[in-house]
Design a binder for these strands. Sequence first.
DNA 1: TTGAAAGCGCTACCAT
DNA 2: ATGGTAGCGCTTTCAA
Lengths: 334, 334
Amino acid sequence: MPEVAASRRVTSADIAKDVGVSRATVGFVLNSTPGKKISEATRARVLESAARLGYQPNRAAADLARGRSKIILLVLPDRLLGPSMQASLDEGARVLAEAGYALVTQPQARPLGGIPPLWETLGPDVVIGWTTFTPEEVMSMRAAGVRRIRPRPGESARYDQAPGVAEGARMQVDHLHELGHRRIAVAALNDPQMIELQRSRADAAMQRAEELGMETVALRSVDHRDGSSAEAVRIWHDDGVTAVVAYNDDVAATVAGAAIEAGLRVPQDLAVIGHDDSPIASLFVPPLSSIRMDTVEAARYLAAVALHEADGRPVTSTWTALDTRVVARRSTLG
Amino acid sequence: MPEVAASRRVTSADIAKDVGVSRATVGFVLNSTPGKKISEATRARVLESAARLGYQPNRAAADLARGRSKIILLVLPDRLLGPSMQASLDEGARVLAEAGYALVTQPQARPLGGIPPLWETLGPDVVIGWTTFTPEEVMSMRAAGVRRIRPRPGESARYDQAPGVAEGARMQVDHLHELGHRRIAVAALNDPQMIELQRSRADAAMQRAEELGMETVALRSVDHRDGSSAEAVRIWHDDGVTAVVAYNDDVAATVAGAAIEAGLRVPQDLAVIGHDDSPIASLFVPPLSSIRMDTVEAARYLAAVALHEADGRPVTSTWTALDTRVVARRSTLG
DNA sequence: TTGAAAGCGCTACCAT
DNA sequence: ATGGTAGCGCTTTCAA
């Protein structure tokens, strides 16, 4: 049996030797360095050699020489990881990959006992968060050499201006209005992580209701584990509320569930509409009306912003309105 | 207003200068290099200086010199990202962090159009997957310099032997048996990603049922989007099946929902038990019985395996049985 | 117990 | 159009 040589990884020097040029030239063609004129012939030979030898650039070496990691870190709250968000991330990753950046996500923004945040260990060029970072977090990032942070420190995330946020909430209200509801409630979730986004959606909903001349009752947080949802439903119903705008589909399910348990009919006695069109919306009985957003476009924009921060390249895409629409199901239609 | 100097990142050389020792010495104490005797005095001074100056080692440089990235990449199918899995990941990350490793997760194992897998861009020391990797993936990893891969190429993931997998399925069946059910069905999900795990759970359930002298009918996949769940429920009911073991809570919700839509009572006409105790289980009406596993212990074990692969250190923790138990709710209890 | 110095593989500046 | 080469910041062997 022939001895198998422990093969070293192939480096750019190997290619240089193989092709018969300098390592510099190899680097130029492999990075398609702008402003460098390489003859088509050598370019082709280098590329061919790289492919044949199975060359993979050494990230550590490149990072070190370059002074940047070409990593973009996305810090997401757990709850956001619905399927639609997942698809968006793919799209964002694709855009970034084309520019040579890797997208890494850190699932938790919350204080993680004992786990150093990924921005310390990975040294990303850019950190993008869904919510504003605390001063401590920003300091930690700065110390870790992170050059760019979004949302910018001190700058609010301003969800109310983000595409789709207000639209979705408005559409929830519009939908209920069209169905004839005139007195509605807004239901939120007891989750500190999401306060900003919740507030933005709730505000937008309230405002829209007012514009349409509808009556609203005070915002309530519900939790299926305590009695808060049952209590909320009772209060609402006694108060003449006929429909509920829920922060998301989990909240919608909680409310609808409490209503059903209380002997109310959904939607005849209480209609409920959720947000995000997550799996539970179609699995619930009755299926929950919800809002579906095309977050793919948002992800593209986010990626563009990231590249702007990282490379200084102009933001090409625009903060356009998302394709947002109501998915009407039996929790409002009967 | 005073000009703010654009401060360079602090390097180990800065510390060396500050303390008045060599960069090597600094490195020794910062890495607590074994076999090196550093006086307590200098050690303390170095540490103090590092803290005071806010030193953060440069990952790229360290990786390059060391020849390894100290990154462990976990490749997870999307569907697994339930809250319990999330908590487990935190635990795994914590264990790995203590050993100086960063845990990065790649959300999709599936072919990602145009997105280079993270193992190419990050150059992790170890890649851990939930399912077996394809030969192409393995080759790609090898080419990217990944030294360790789990499950080992060619080695099946062997979920049937993984802790908790068989237990959970068995407990589902036991639970139904105790409630007097004697003829049951097993419901799966139409998801290629999960085939291995589904099969393992289904096999375990079937086998347990046989051991208990219960009758089982053929495994069926359900999908709430087509008519398959309604059809399955009808067939099962006509066939005298009184209870269904579902692969997970989504499947359980699909089945229970179809049953309710068909005018059957859950659990009187058809009992359903899910698996994983995900949010939908408690949110559904009626709330779904399910299986809750303490995956934290599993995560610890996984982390230990990863460290073994990475460092060659012995696997301390053992592949123990997980704390797995039935969460009985109204979908089986009535 | 500590220091000097040789790389790690790549990038990018300066020559040619 | 291409090559030489000086680092990037850290790890680690070898000397002192």
